[in-house]
Amino acid sequence: MKKTLFLFLLLLFTLSGRAQLPQITLKNIGGKEVNVSQLTTEGRPVIISFFATWCKPCLRELSAIHEVYEDWQAETGVKLVAVSIDEGATSLKVKPLAQSLDWQYEVLLDPNSDLKRALQVQLVPTVIVVDGKGHIVYRHSGYSEGSEEEIIAQVRKTLKR
């Protein structure tokens, strides 16, 4: 069994490239469908932040970014896409939350964790930075105050590539 698994892992590694965004369509809080693989068609970097309405560190991270989001956008053109993993009727609390906090982010709903699973996100908050060509270049799980500086540093790096 272990031998088979080892060979399977080797096979995956030989195929390994820089992962891209998956072909998954989610609804945004405006009720419109958004194809995740098309998020970077404008050639700008994207930050994907997985969160839930009950997750305090997630909201702390998104609030911290909210404070500097305008500066980040002006400097790098980055767009933040917040993906809620709230389930069932709880996902209906996401729009009032986003509006009341005056978020300027694109907010997507992932109520059965399809995108979360496709990007192999194991816990929230998880932040993924995607370059303008759609390659995943950085990911970070958990939030410690001030770690948003690392996120924008990674976004800046994508512009130098």
Partner: peptide, 18 residues
């Protein structure tokens, strides 16, 4: 299940029954 939400810049409410 019936839910209703209304949100504008700076505030939002959600009501529901099941």
């Amino acid at each position: 299940m019936l839910t209703f939400s209304y949100a504008d810049r700076g505030w939002g409410v959600m009501l529901g029954a099941r």
